[in-house]
Design a protein around this nucleic acid. Sequence first.
DNA 1: CTGAAAGCGCTTACAG
DNA 2: CTGAAAGCGCTTACAG
Lengths: 333, 333
Amino acid sequence: MRKVTIYDVAAAADVSLATVSRAVNNPEKVRPETRERVLRVIEELGYKPNAFARGLASRKSTTVAVLAPDMSRASIAEMMNGIADIARVYKYAILLYVLDNDESREEETLREIIAAQVDGILYLNDEITEQQYAFLLKIKNEYRIPIVLANTLYPENDEIPSVSIDYEKAGYEITKRLLEEKRKDLYMVSTVRKYMVNDLKEAGYVRAMEEASHTPRIMRTSGRIAINVEHFNEYFTDKPVDAVIAVRDSIAVSFMNVARQNGARIPEDMSVVGFQNTKYALLARPQLSCVDVPIYDIGAVAMRLLTKLMNEESVEERRVLLKHSFITRKTTL
Amino acid sequence: MRKVTIYDVAAAADVSLATVSRAVNNPEKVRPETRERVLRVIEELGYKPNAFARGLASRKSTTVAVLAPDMSRASIAEMMNGIADIARVYKYAILLYVLDNDESREEETLREIIAAQVDGILYLNDEITEQQYAFLLKIKNEYRIPIVLANTLYPENDEIPSVSIDYEKAGYEITKRLLEEKRKDLYMVSTVRKYMVNDLKEAGYVRAMEEASHTPRIMRTSGRIAINVEHFNEYFTDKPVDAVIAVRDSIAVSFMNVARQNGARIPEDMSVVGFQNTKYALLARPQLSCVDVPIYDIGAVAMRLLTKLMNEESVEERRVLLKHSFITRKTTL
DNA sequence: CTGAAAGCGCTTACAG
DNA sequence: CTGAAAGCGCTTACAG
């Protein structure tokens, strides 16, 4: 079946191709009767404008590029749902670029994205270096392509708009919460790899600890479960600990499993909390208390913000911070 | 910064644009010296061919559409990693379409995909109806767009190639395995919603049970954890049960939690197994025994198969079945 | 409100 | 091995 083109429609509707194009793109510019006739023919023939021709002629693609690391991370996957739902509403297609760890290839990827003529870019990488930020900024300014960071905060600069929660505040609040339980030996378990958002959680934790005149103590683990067990055992063998804040639910659960195996009663002897409120928290026993991060909403709001930017609507807030909350389950007093 | 076009390169390299195009696409057709000069200029100017112009002129997009339901499902997310890695190697871009549950919109989505001129389609939906299959087949045949199903088996027809594991066999084997533990009251916990792959797991379970002259008993649950607890309690209140096979790890863990709360010792009184070998299995206590499904590989192999199809290489197997295995941890004897 | 025509930036027979 | 030219299927000033 040959693809039906605008010429076929024009011929069948007995108008010029310009009119067909207008009927589709600027309906108000064509007489109602004509428009309806054209639209009917389009329906009959099942005409869909060729996206390449359209993109080439109009310089708009109604496509956004989504740059994301490892899709299997619960936060990324869930954010994608939010992004996709809003993209569908505003009729944008999504070009997905999964970043590997080779940072040197990232520039290459971005060039490709520019060649693909996307109307906007959504950047989900929560680990963003100065260089990467600078490069994004360059793209934004030189090619005038709107960019939005989702679930990332770049503290030093807000030229690129972002959507996130206030991770520093969340880290602070959750620490205070545990301090109120009279916990003293309160650790934060973070990641070896430096993620922007984890830095912020740590900063909040440190602030609360220092305010309470406690020494902040941060343990860094790889995210890998198999390794964690040994690592936890080793690290905590000679340290008293009565509360742990993990930067991810899965790390919290992983830690809790080790602690229980070593005889700790949760939450009597030790409180454990995580971040995000994933299925891991719900499936753990005892069920994990945690900071609820509205990750789907972060994706959705970021995409919505991008649509505004692409339409050149004015955007007041350059740093959108969504509300987080604390969910008390069974691992806190 | 104005985009640099093929004309700019041609001028700077002092050749015609045709030569530039050839240097990029058919290097063997241009004299080495010329080619190198052109390539050097391309490098200098940072030229990237406009994807729209290229797509329009060549009718090839080096883009594949990936159709997937709910990204937050662990299997889908992990498959995406495999797909993206192979796509990168073969230089295909990925257009991601996240399906909502409105099946009527799926045809619309597919028309859009055709308009986008993709070179191939990867279909990840593990729930595929006769109608959907028929529609995909129509697209494949009418528009000659190669399609591959990933992690789906459509038993009645193999015109559309697929990559998966032999879920029926896996279901059969795991049931046999539990039967060898002398379990008698062996249930399968499946989903209310009918997924192709779950049907197959069920079929394997039923076959093994019948061979052993046991009555197969399948409980269907929504995947939602909050609901599961009540549902499990209610369903099993008056039934003896000494083994459970869940179609997903998360369901297995969820079930196990309820069973333990009701006093069952795992695995002494009851064996529990899941499917896939996710992080859920590792984080559960006791750690979950399960069927290991090489889901990343399924994505990668499916994408690789699609590249072959797009290159019109001949493909012998229309139903690729990857190897699965059984991982014994702490929830089986 | 409608049409003829130029142009978007490439690829690819066709000549030479 | 290289170039001139047609053509891919649209959009969009420009006329009328």
